[in-house]
Design a protein around this nucleic acid. Structure first.
Length: 573
DNA sequence: TCTATATCACCC
DNA sequence: AAACGGGTGATATAGA
């Protein structure tokens, strides 16, 4: 913990705040405790609002310590305060230290305290106090004292946790992660512009859309009870029509879409039910968190996954549900948004980190799959995307599947090809990209021997004896990809780009219409730089989709569904 | 009637 | 035993 001496002050801080779904945080109080001097501040709402800057310095000589700092930093933004220059967030540090291990108390502050055998506030008591804070409105003087005391108890807990975690910390890298929490706070603050009229119309017609879709098709089948698909009725229908149907090991009917697709081939009469089930399953928008300013905002859950990705709620976040809903994204008057994603990010990471020259060349060619197919002798040298579309698809499936550890049989099944074709394709990959395979084997060996894998910036996962080999082999791609996007988000937000949200290998940005092209160029520069830093000089390309008011964002996978729903609502698409 | 579990679908 | 990585979440149904 000698690094503490690098700072003039070390402030452990915690805010209480309210944040209704989709809204920006509204601070209720702040408690801070300076570790070196024991100085303490307790500031209530009204006084907070009067402060033009934090009640302690936040320059590079001060370390600000928090647990899940994007919440605290969101309050900084709400108060118009400058962001702290050095943030140590013990949440990602705890996750980094324990990812892959069981943490019985979870990864919250209480879970971390429990993990280190430290005294913690009772969970029920903590919940009760959060309720009191969230209630909002006015608090009696007693309640106010109770909230401040509770806030202070969390700061005290943080102060106990710091020396427990401090000795194991890699401070420079922890500060990189803390820096991302500030970027996350800015993105959570920005949010995604939503067409609230369309959203309201959909919500209003929700049930009737569902019922209408079901009524049209189920007439012939009678397998729905209201809006519920009944497995026993489906069994009865199949029996009545003499259709044998695959079952699961449990003996129940297999009702996944794959089975429906397979069965539709020989029994075309079941196809409409398949389509209906698909449509119904895509109709989910009840929980989307949209604030009073018409923007979709939710906790990004930065560092939520084992690989360090953000893990926002799929139901609250507009990029969570199926892709047709993204057409709700619509920039306001005078505004434009752009979706910028890394081209084939994980392939490029595999190529760069493995040092496989041929794989790098395939990425640099601009069409990885076709170049791979040519290198492997799977298509003639003069083949094009058009002349050999089917082969290209197969080589694409191999190239991507390999990153997940897809087996020969799995590959064959996915391609609907005989097992020997799966084996051939996999063999061609191994022969074409030998260095990649040597590296991938080494990754697995390292995980098993050392019990741990790390990204270039030290994000780690622990591997026990029961670890999944495919998961371990995939870790470098996914986790370094996560590092890359985090770094790009830091650079872009700090440079003043309005980043609405990250999407694993992409960002959505927003700007005035006249400025969007410049913002896109700047962001692409940040993303490229981030790739070079993570991959020791290997640059990644990015793809861009710009949408200007009054247009809406559209994802081709969801275009048909969007039109269908609009039609059912009597709206223009 | 409520809850837990299995299964399935969606995202990158 | 299965053999496609990381996730969240809705739904249907079995069980308490």
């Amino acid at each position: 913990m000698d690094w503490l001496g690098h700072f003039d002050a070390v402030w452990c801080v915690d805010f209480e705040f309210t944040a209704p779904p989709g809204e920006r945080p509204s601070p209720v109080c702040l408690v801070g405790h300076e570790v070196l001097t024991g100085r303490r501040v307790r500031v209530w709402q009204d006084e907070l609002r009067a402060l033009r800057e934090p009640p302690f310095p936040v320059g590079p000589r001060t370390l600000v310590v928090a647990y899940y700092a994007s919440a605290e930093l969101g309050c900084f933004l709400a108060l118009g305060w400058p962001m702290p220059a050095r943030v140590l967030d013990l949440f990602p540090e705890f996750k980094c230290r324990t990812s892959g291990l069981a943490t019985p108390g979870g990864a919250g502050l209480l879970g971390a305290l429990m993990y280190f055998g430290l005294e913690a506030l009772d969970a029920a008591e903590k919940d009760g106090m959060r309720q009191l804070v969230m209630r909002g409105g006015q608090w009696t003087p007693d309640e106010r004292r109770a909230v401040l005391d509770y806030c202070e108890s969390d700061v005290a807990a943080l102060t106990r946790l710091l020396p427990a975690m401090g000795p194991g910390l890699d401070l420079p890298r922890a500060l990189i992660r803390g820096r991302y929490m500030a970027a996350a706070a800015r993105m959570e603050w920005a949010g995604v512009p939503i067409d609230t009229d369309a959203l309201a119309a959909f919500k209003h017609h929700w049930l009737s859309i569902k019922e209408e879709l079901i009524a049209r098709i189920d007439r012939e089948f009678g397998v729905y009870d209201g809006t519920t698909f009944k497995a026993d009725r489906w069994a009865a229908y199949l029996a009545a029509h003499n259709i044998p149907w695959p079952t699961l090991p449990s003996g129940k009917l297999a009702l996944d879409d794959d089975t429906f697709r397979e069965m539709s081939r020989n029994h075309p009469r079941v196809a409409p039910i398949r389509e209906l089930r698909t449509s119904i399953s895509q109709l989910r928008l009840n929980e989307l968190a949209v604030g009073s300013d018409g923007r979709n905002r939710c906790l990004l859950s930065a560092f939520g996954s084992k690989t360090g990705r953000n893990q926002p709620s799929n139901s609250k976040f507009v990029f969570g549900p199926s892709a047709w809903l993204r057409s709700l994204i619509r920039p306001g008057p005078g505004k434009a948004v752009a979706y910028i994603d890394y081209s084939q990010q994980e392939l490029a990471i595999a190529a760069a980190l493995s040092g496989d020259r041929r794989m790098q060349a395939a990425y640099e060619s601009g069409d990885f799959y076709l170049t791979f197919a040519k290198m492997a002798g799977g298509v003639p040298a003069g083949a094009t995307k058009e002349s050999h579309a089917a082969e290209r698809e197969q080589f694409k499936t191999v190239a991507l599947g390999v990153l997940y550890g897809l087996s020969a049989d799995g590959l064959a099944r996915k391609l609907n090809a005989p097992p020997c074709r799966g084996r051939d394709l996999l063999r061609m990959h191994k022969e074409t990209f030998r260095q990649f395979w040597r590296w991938s084997d080494a990754v697995q060996d390292q995980a098993v021997l050392v019990g741990k894998l790390e990204t270039v910036f030290g994000w780690a996962v622990r591997a026990g004896a029961d670890a999944n080999a495919r998961s371990l082999r995939n870790f470098p791609m996914q986790a370094n990809g996560s590092e890359m996007l985090r770094l790009a988000c830091c650079d872009a937000t700090e440079a003043g780009v309005t980043v609405c949200c990250p999407v694993h290998d992409a960002v959505l940005i927003e700007a005035a219409e006249a400025e969007i092209d410049a913002a896109v160029e700047a962001t692409q520069g940040h993303m490229r730089r981030a790739s070079e830093i993570v991959l020791a000089g290997f640059p990644l390309r990015t793809d861009v989709k710009v949408v200007r008011h009054p247009d809406r964002y559209s994802d081709k996978r969801g275009a048909a569904m969007w039109r269908a729903v609009c039609e059912l609502c009597g709206r223009a698409p």
